[in-house]
């Protein structure tokens, strides 16, 4: 509860700061729109040549792209601002400020700086999901929507765990900056894992599980929920979160601060 209050306060502060710069809001909204339009246009291009992409129809792909935009927007709004200069914070000792505060240090250091304007992308993503469902011509069942929401949350949790896990490596190698690498790996979630070969598909399911982040939520929404998929996602979410928390604790133990 205390963490939720902290999170809410941090978001409120970030929102007030962001709204003070209206031109930036305009730029971010236009960019989010252009980016999503490019994704949708790419799918449109593919479907001018084929009726099915690795078993996914045009409507299903739109719902998928909307889900990807929704999760990417949430990540950009709530995780990226804190993690952008995480290695730098370790190098110059600014991490001390989080460790000294009477709250959970991993939450403080990894998700209390926000970029609320990035949520424009998530809102547009929801719009694309609705367009995709209209294209499919059917209303998803309550179970499908619940499965989608749950899997999206788990996907976000896995996204947080992988981002923080990679960033935490900076405790051992402070000059290591893997943000670009994580961004590149995240891009593989732009399409369902079914388009990749067998080995890559396994890698993207268990090693860097973009399957759980984007494919499974969209699959649940457009084809109905599968208990096996839900169980695997929960398991993956638990394992990745536990591993990241362990890595964080080991890293913090190793961290010596700016002046010690």
């Amino acid at each position: 509860m205390r963490v939720a209050r902290l999170f809410g306060t941090a978001f409120s502060l970030s929102l007030r700061r962001a709204l003070a710069y209206r031109t930036n809001l305009f730029f971010d909204a236009v960019l989010a729109f252009v980016d999503l339009t490019a994704s949708v246009a790419t799918i449109g291009l593919v479907f001018t040549q084929t009726g099915l992409l690795a078993g996914w129809t045009a409507g299903q792909m739109l719902a998928f792209t909307g889900t990807y935009a929704l999760i990417t927007g949430l990540r950009a709004a709530f995780l990226d601002p804190s993690l952008a200069d995480f290695a730098q914070q370790i190098r110059d000792g600014r991490l001390d400020a989080y460790l000294l505060r009477p709250a959970n240090s991993v939450v403080l250091a990894t998700c209390t700086r926000h970029a609320p304007l990035a949520l424009v992308q998530s809102l547009l993503g929801v719009g694309v999901i609705i367009v995709g469902l209209r294209e499919l011509g059917r209303v998803p069942s309550p179970a499908a929507v619940t499965g989608w929401a749950l899997l999206t949350l788990i996907g976000l949790l896995i996204g947080w765990a992988t981002s923080v896990g990679l960033a935490a490596l900076a405790f051992w190698a402070p000059r290591l900056s893997l943000g670009v690498l994580h961004g590149a790996a995240w891009q593989t979630g732009r399409y369902p894992v079914d388009i990749y070969g067998r080995w890559l598909r396994r890698l993207l399911t268990f090693a860097f599980p973009v399957a759980a982040i984007t494919t499974w939520p969209a699959q649940s929404l457009t084809r109905g929920p599968g208990p096996g998929v839900l169980l695997t996602a929960i398991l993956l979410g638990g394992v990745f979160t536990a591993a990241t928390l362990l890595l964080w604790q080991l890293g913090v133990r190793r961290y010596t601060g700016a002046t010690s």
């Binding site: 690795a54 670009v180 590149a184 388009i195």
Partner: peptide
């Protein structure tokens, strides 16, 4: 090491294009 991550960042879009269009028989 940072340049290696830039290489991957630069290559990921065409790589995705490759994976997608390999699924399309008319490509």
């Amino acid at each position: 090491w940072f340049i290696v991550t830039l290489v991957l960042g630069q290559a990921v879009a065409p790589l995705l294009g490759l994976f997608v269009w390999r699924q399309v028989p008319g490509a």
